[in-house]
């Protein structure tokens, strides 16, 4: 499709170790539209970070290996690109912001050097020009006194400032797609709201598409245009944000939304999902969610459902929404 900047089709990535093949990303398909935000939500271990690392070609390799599917970025399949070509795309075409800015910034280089490094690598510019652009980026992300921050090392900055510096670096070559992997999880709420509105502002200003990975349903609601919910390496539900919250369909999504304490309503007991996320080496035979699902039938325990459209634009991986469902 023309207006999809990124299309992931049937992507599978597995780790190979003493347990055998562990499907960390399991037949995942989705697309990111130009200028839009796609939210990926799920609990830890559901494969959301691994999916983004596959796109960047940064997953540990070995033991990881892409075993199927393709990642189409602007019409080119990233899984087949040689390393040299990937270098050109990382940072220029697709940039990424990580959860913990302290561990992703180089502690012995100044912020300015790190931003300039990206620019010098991808663009044919002089050092002076790169410095001017780096300062401009630092200014753009709302850091007061750009010159001072330019010459500071990461440890001299607060968490919010570091995350801003990361964003400045990621956006310095005006990427077409920005992947944010839990960009605000390590930050306080007041700083989180600053960073989220910054990402939104820059998205509109620069026309960047955003892929936002988070475990926080509230962040998804406020940021994303479209959402996919992941569970144990699979996409279990996909819809536009308003539709997903209005009609959550997959039992996992419903459980997840109900487990969050709400600010406005008062309940004595929070809803819980029984059991826990299965380990990759002990995945159940049937539907991956069946052992924890209140509606599971024998069919669920023996067969894996495919993802299908329940209503137009709203897909779900559950037998309840397919013809021939008998249990309840």
């Amino acid at each position: 499709m023309e207006n999809n900047i990124l299309e992931v089709q049937d992507l599978s990535m597995s780790f190979f170790n003493s347990h055998g093949e562990l499907p960390a990303v399991n037949h995942v398909s989705f697309s990111v539209k130009k200028g839009k935000t796609l939210g990926i939500v799920g609990e830890s271990g559901c494969g959301k970070s691994m999916t983004s690392l596959c796109i960047m070609g940064l997953f540990p390799q070995p033991p990881g290996k892409i075993v199927g599917g393709q990642i189409l970025f602007q019409g080119r399949d990233l899984t087949k690109l040689p390393a040299r070509e990937m270098h050109k795309i990382r940072g220029k075409g697709i940039a990424m912001i990580f959860q913990e800015p302290m561990t992703s910034l180089n502690p012995v280089l100044t912020i300015g050097d790190q931003i300039m490094e990206t620019i010098l690598l991808h663009e044919k510019v002089t050092k002076a020009e790169a410095k001017r652009r780096a300062l401009e980026m630092i200014n753009l992300v709302g850091i007061p006194m750009p010159e001072k921050i330019f010459a500071s090392c990461p440890h001299q900055l607060s968490g919010g400032m570091r995350q801003r510096a990361m964003i400045a670096m990621a956006l310095s070559c005006e990427p077409d797609l920005l992947i944010c992997d839990e960009p605000t999880t390590a930050l306080d709420v007041t700083v989180q709201s600053q960073i989220l509105s910054l990402i939104n502002r820059l998205k509109n200003q620069l026309g960047t598409s955003v892929m936002l990975i988070t475990h926080d349903m509230g962040v998804i609601n406020e940021m994303a245009d479209e959402v996919i919910v992941m569970y144990a390496g699979q996409v279990v539900e996909q819809a536009e944000t308003a539709e997903l919250f209005a009609h959550p369909t997959h039992p996992y999504t419903i459980g997840l939304i109900r487990a969050i304490p709400m600010l406005d309503t008062e309940v004595e007991e929070l809803n819980v999902i029984p059991g826990s996320v299965p380990m990759l080496y002990e995945l159940p035979e049937g539907c991956l969610f069946a052992p924890r699902c209140p509606y599971a039938t024998d069919k669920c325990r023996s067969h894996r459902p495919e993802i299908t459209e329940a209503t137009p634009g709203h897909s779900v991986r559950c037998f309840r929404y397919m013809s021939g469902w008998e249990g309840e």
């Binding site: 007041t190 600053q194 926080d216 509230g218 609601n221 919250f245 969050i260 709400m262 600010l263 406005d264």
Partner: peptide, 16 residues
């Protein structure tokens, strides 16, 4: 500043 879920009252955001 808390990211709100649908159905929660969203007043004006105060950004510090």
């Amino acid at each position: 500043a808390i990211p709100k879920m649908p159905g929660e009252a969203t007043g004006e955001k105060i950004e510090l």
